[in-house]
Simulated scan of single mutants.
Amino acid sequence: MKSRRKFLIHLGTGLIPVTFGFTPDSLLFKTDNPPKDKKLRVALMGLGSYANRVADAMKDSKYAKVSGVISGTPSKIADWKKRFDIPDKNCYNYGNFDAIKDNDEIDAVYIITPNALHHGQCLRVAAAGKHVICEKPMAINAKEGQEMVEACDKAGVELLIGYRMRFEANTLEIVKMREAGEFGEIKFFQGLSGFKIGDPNQWRLDPKLAGGGAMMDIGIYAINGTRYMVGEEPIWVTAQEVKTDPIKFKEGVDETITFQLGFESGVVASCLSTYSMNYLDKFFLNGTKGFAELKPATGYGPIRSETHKGRLDLPHITHQTKQMDEMAKIILEGKKPTIPVDGKDGLKDLKIIDAIYQSVKQGSKVMLDL
């Protein structure tokens, strides 16, 4: 197992506070305008459980399709070739995928590998001239994230982060209501993100592959949600860590972190990230005129929502289907999403995560400059 992890890491690394500025009209997604005469042709890198979920969801996509695969496991490639009718020339391993540069049947690569591999793989995909879609977190720290943004900018390709909730109907409706002033002056936000993790030998509990623990995997939802629900960028953070099982959650793998984010307007967010408690998937936004709650807030759905005006519970569309359709429009048509999903926005989450870990270590407030 250790030799395989070293092999994967080796291959993968080869190579001012502002508001979001949403307008209510921009919150209305139009789904009847397909990107010209083609679909976005996507190669999936890393064929684990989430890649399977994405691929199955893309069967219902109007504007994107699975056109290639990249994996270090030959048996998985053989299975995917049959399931998705993928030709041999669109199948690669981690050693030779730079050759996609000469493949005109692949437009973008969706990186769905362990966190520590994202950086090196993104740089290689960008160098090959293909658009990058990368699962969250986009990297294990802000330095790597910045290098990914710069590499994609230099190559003239898009870098999008797999923030599926930013296309979800209930989430967008609450953001629309906030922008319309229906909650009044925002005062407080709560984000609870956690579950009890299972297999102690999985890569998510290996600091060399995960780059951390619960914060990188599930806590990032609370960070991300705070920003788009409040509609501001935080200017400071404080954080506290609790570890009850130092054997399972070894050095460099956080079990539970509570953290607070402060905003220039005076809003305070109180959040929790954990790998040791279930039933924690809730966002709560409170203002002087009303409130909004999402519970569950980030699960695969359906998402449940309630406001001071009553329940929303808008129709459920598979998140990954919606995400890939909208990302296809971003890449092929230059469409601007309601809530940003680009690498520069993902980099802000990494800066906050870096600051949270710093605050835990030094035991004091850390100022943010996003």
Rank of each mutant, 00 (worst) to 15 (best):
D325V: 03
G310D: 10
G343A: 08
G334N: 05
T307E: 06
R304W: 09
Y300H: 14
I317P: 06
D281A: 12
D313C: 08
Y300R: 12
P302M: 06
L347W: 00
P337W: 04
D325R: 02
P296K: 04
G346S: 04
L280I: 01
L312Q: 09
L314G: 02
T298F: 11
F283R: 00
K309G: 08
I330Q: 03
Q320N: 13
G334F: 03
E326W: 04
T307D: 03
K322N: 12
G287D: 01
E293F: 04
Q320I: 08
G299K: 13
H308D: 13
R311I: 11
G334V: 03
S305N: 09
L347K: 01
A328H: 01
K309L: 11
P337E: 08
K348S: 13
G343H: 04
K295Q: 15
R311W: 13
D345R: 06
L347I: 06
K344D: 07
G346C: 05
A292R: 00
I331C: 00
A297E: 04
T338Q: 11
G299S: 15
H308K: 10
L332E: 04
A328D: 01
K322Y: 08
P337V: 06
D345P: 00
E333C: 10
L312G: 02
M277C: 09
P302W: 04
H316L: 11
A328L: 01
G299R: 14
P296A: 04
L285S: 01
I303K: 09
K322T: 15
T321H: 05
E306A: 11
Y279W: 10
K309M: 13
A297K: 02
E293A: 10
L285K: 01
L332K: 08
K309S: 12
H319L: 15
T298Q: 02
L312K: 05
D345C: 07
G310C: 09
K289D: 08
L314Y: 01
E333W: 06
I331H: 00
G290Y: 04
T307A: 02
T321Y: 05
M277Q: 11
S305E: 09
L332D: 03
Y300I: 14
P337H: 07
D313W: 06
T321C: 12
T288W: 03
E326V: 15
T338I: 11
P340N: 08
E333D: 09
G310F: 06
D342C: 12
S305F: 08
K348Q: 12
P337K: 07
E293M: 13
I303R: 11
A292Y: 01
P315H: 12
F284E: 10
Y279S: 11
M327K: 06
H308Q: 15
K289N: 06
Y300W: 13
P296Q: 05
T307I: 03
